[in-house]
Amino acid sequence: MTQSIMVVTTTVFFMLIQCVDAYCQQSDSSKIAPQLEPISDSVTARYQFEFTVVGTIGVTRYEDNPTRFSSTNRFRGFAGLLRAMWHPDHLLSIGVTSGYILLSEETFASGTAGLLESESEVQLTAFPILLSFAMQPGNLQIGAGVGAYMLTSATRIAGEEKFTSSDFELGVHAWAGYDFDVFSGFSVGPEVSLHVLSNRGIGAFHAGVRVQYDLLY
């Protein structure tokens, strides 16, 4: 019930703020342009079909320590993502995102209680397949993707043979990037991103560099 109240109240509040904000802006702008005029696109489309390669490093946070031998729930990781986006002539662009993410890697030294005398290792990686949406005011791009992450766990316990096991999980990806034009069709800039697999209690925050190529430049 508490959750319900929080979601509803914050949502309503959020919308009210938007309304007030917009009303204030409308009042201001009406002083400048009292005549209502036809509207043109406020944001010029930067591209029509774009490939972006993103390389990031980041931190993965699990809801709890992932094993009883783990001393933390935060781990360093990295990601390489490829994004293809189609941008028609209005605000929204749509596309797909995929790539490789190392979420965490742990090694337990020999002698760890319960793992006998041999060293043990665990690793979790993800292969996202996401439907993505983005908006791009100026050189900024803000986007989100939703879809499946194929998680792969690689485990070797106390000298046993290493083996992998995989499964799909629903997840969401949000990012914000800024593009500096380098030469025709190419741009480079920073990107920060977030991956959330809430059902598994996994969140990963990444920062890195994006290189973008506009196919139809």
Binding site: P66, T67, L151, S153, T155, S166, D167, R200
Partner: peptide, 11 residues
């Protein structure tokens, strides 16, 4: 995650 929430135990 319904039964075993550990992120390494999947499949």
């Amino acid at each position: 995650a319904r039964t075993v929430p550990s992120p390494y135990v999947i499949g």
